[in-house]
Design a protein around this nucleic acid. Structure first.
Lengths: 320, 320
DNA sequence: TTGTACGCGTTATCAG
DNA sequence: CTGATAACGCGTACAA
């Protein structure tokens, strides 16, 4: 592997001059520049990027923590980040945490060790204090409402959104409403849970724990929801389903079980994934790819803490 | 940021000694070791990993090229790689190529520049000669049949598999058989195309171009397949669908259009994704997560070229 | 058992 | 315009 010093020798100039032409810096005569360029061609020179990183104290690497990539929600966020990373000449380092705290700490460590310039955490299990402790080592960005906290974020106001969706169902005449979530302990889920509680209280509806379905992430989880509902003496008439994948599973399974949608059961999905369009599912659009882009840009921005709320849109189709 | 030299000064020893305790090397007295350890604690020392990489000529980073992450096929491969990377203390660098050659070259460049130790290309658009040119800069692994070539791979013999599936349909009485693929130009697709051609020739069946559906990647693409079939005067009676997602879309859409499956149209999906189980789709299981693991291990292995064929299994359910 | 000195490849500073 | 030379932080022959 030929290095910058070899080039200097070949071209009969100093390493400084070589570095100058390499980085398109001014103050180098056309003549010498050409000699160096020739040497570069001839030697098939490739800069060692680790040396550059060491010298610059920067890696152009951004870490991304997701519990798993094989879910449209995270896949779409990453897709957006990858697009933006590309345009800004950064690369993405993937951390699949599987919601193990040790994995999240790994990522945080890499930030501390300067192997990545920034870290984007899409979903976390670790406590807030842990995050806070690492903020001084580099840029950390979260995908949840961090208002009032010392960390930038791009987020959806899930409280507001849930209230809005619940009111919509209420107006359509529904009084027995339930919802599904991915996992109950997440930050976003907590906002949703609180919204639900507040809503049923305000509208004098019963708070029926059986109407809340946890661990609903994939298409096939829809089957479980339908199964459970069929066992109920007094089933819900409408459901907020926080992933279109799951909503699609519910609709599919309902058809098989001769449950009529929306007359027996109304469904509102989330994200407006393509599958929702094809299956005519009423859904709340969340621009995940766009969110991914913004998360990334916040990560590489030098600026101060910013909270970026993303607006959502109700897409009315045939399941309500 | 305190470095190894500061520690040496603090502990009153040399940098070598510090380095020794840092890396658990022998030949350092318990006494000095403790002094150093104390200094590390006190100073909140963190090694700069870029310096280590420069010094060692290794990064513990492995690159992964996929056209897009938001597809179960690639997501599952990556999932497997991420799991294995975790166990081996490596990190994954994600390259979303979108099938643009320039993106693949970016990744290849990083290998050349030593920013990644190995590169796994799950699907490519670039020519074989391009790959070959970069093999000397580091370990490259492909997810396609590379037998006879100079690059390791973990692959499914899609020719064999397609012939097998076609024969199965033939035995079930089907004579008008078609198939769908993601993109026609891929290596895997070519093997499938060849298998199809050879099969219809051997079995004296007509080679009907309209029975071949391209660009079928997502659930919603199933709708297009059904639409096109309905327009045909002489539609196929059976379809090989190279992604369960698409198969599920076809089944769903067929229901809506009152096309009976399998009596009007038989379907064999691929991958055995959870959605196939839930919708009772006959499918060919491909252990994608397992393949991801093996791809990764081949990437970090020092050994010579290895071709690792992955066996597949037919899962008989209700769509044939 | 310990330490000196150099190499890794590049960028940045500063004197000419 | 040009070029020594000093960082950057760490690993490791080699010498003691």
């Amino acid at each position: 592997m030929t290095n910058i010093r070899d080039l200097a020798k070949m071209a009969g100039v100093s390493v400084t001059t070589v570095s100058r032409v390499l980085n398109n810096h001014p103050y180098v005569s056309e003549e010498k520049r050409n000699t160096v360029l020739a040497a570069i061609k001839e030697s098939n020179y490739q800069p060692n990027i680790n040396a550059i990183h060491l010298s610059m104290g920067k890696t152009f690497l951004v870490g991304v923590v997701v519990p798993f990539i094989d879910h449209p929600y995270f896949a779409l966020l990453i897709k957006g980040m990858a697009m933006e990373a590309l345009e800004n000449n950064y690369k993405l380092v993937l951390f699949q945490s599987n919601y193990e705290e040790a994995r999240e700490l790994d990522a945080l460590q890499m930030l501390k060790q300067k192997q990545i310039d920034a870290l984007i955490i899409c979903s976390r299990i670790c406590g807030w204090s842990t995050i806070e402790e690492f903020t001084r080592y580099g840029s950390i960005v979260l995908c949840e409402d961090t208002r009032g906290k010392n960390v930038s974020s791009t987020y959806v106001d899930h409280y507001k959104t849930f209230i809005f969706a619940l009111q919509y169902l209420y107006q359509k005449g529904h009084r027995k409403i339930g919802y599904s979530i991915g996992r109950k302990s997440g930050s976003n889920s907590k906002f949703r849970g609180k919204a639900f509680k507040d809503f049923v209280k305000d509208y004098l509806l019963p708070h029926e724990p059986a109407y809340i379905f946890e661990d609903c992430l994939y298409f096939e989880d829809g089957e479980r929801v339908i199964t459970q509902i069929q066992k109920m003496a007094d089933p819900p008439t409408a459901l907020l389903i926080t992933s279109d994948e799951v909503a699609a599973g519910i609709v599919t399974c309902a058809q098989q079980q001769n449950i009529s949608i929306p007359s027996d059961l109304a469904i509102i999905g989330f994200n407006n994934q393509p599958i929702a369009k094809m299956m005519n599912i009423t859904t709340i659009e969340i621009p995940l790819v766009e969110m991914g882009r913004k998360l990334f840009l916040q990560g590489i921005a030098e600026s101060q803490v910013i909270y970026q709320e993303i607006p959502v849109t109700l897409i009315e189709r045939n399941t309500v």
